[in-house]
């Protein structure tokens, strides 16, 4: 069965160039992609992920609000008993924030220079780790 991924723009910034390139690359790579659209709150993203029963949530932020919103997202997944859904983060993420994001439970963090193919490979590996 194809891996299911939710791609979401978390927070208020509207820079969706990267999120849409990734969504398309994942789709072209054979995954089932749900794109939530822009300006999503952590609550909305978690609700959509649970409803769509995805394996991975990919969130993109270019606003700098990732250290507030990503931990909140992961916390909400736990509250919903959905911690088996992996969270990966992309956008403009300073290097020093990467270990902190992984510590709170992000499965992976992509920088601006990860190629579409590389993102597909890493996302697929993460999706397949989800217990069925």
């Amino acid at each position: 069965m194809a891996e299911r991924v939710l791609v979401a723009k978390l927070g208020l910034d509207g820079h969706d160039r990267g999120a849409k390139v990734v969504a398309r690359a994942l789709r072209d790579g054979g995954m089932e992609v749900v794109y939530t659209g822009l300006h999503r709150t952590p609550e909305q993203v978690v609700a959509a992920a649970v409803q769509e029963d995805v394996d991975v949530i990919g969130v993109s932020l270019l606003s700098g609000a990732h250290m507030t919103l990503v931990p909140r997202l992961i916390e909400l997944l736990k509250e919903q008993g959905a911690e088996d859904i992996a969270v990966v983060v992309g956008g403009v993420i300073p290097e020093e924030d990467v270990p902190e994001l992984k510590k709170v439970g992000a499965a992976d963090v992509f920088d601006q220079y990860a190629s579409p193919d590389e993102i597909v490979t890493r996302m697929r590996a993460i999706a397949r780790r989800r217990p069925s």
């Binding site: 927070g11 208020l12 910034d13 606003s63 700098g64 609000a65 250290m67 507030t68 919103l69």
Partner: peptide, 8 residues
Amino acid sequence: SLGEVGRE
């Protein structure tokens, strides 16, 4: 606005 005030 949480986390975004005065940031960008």
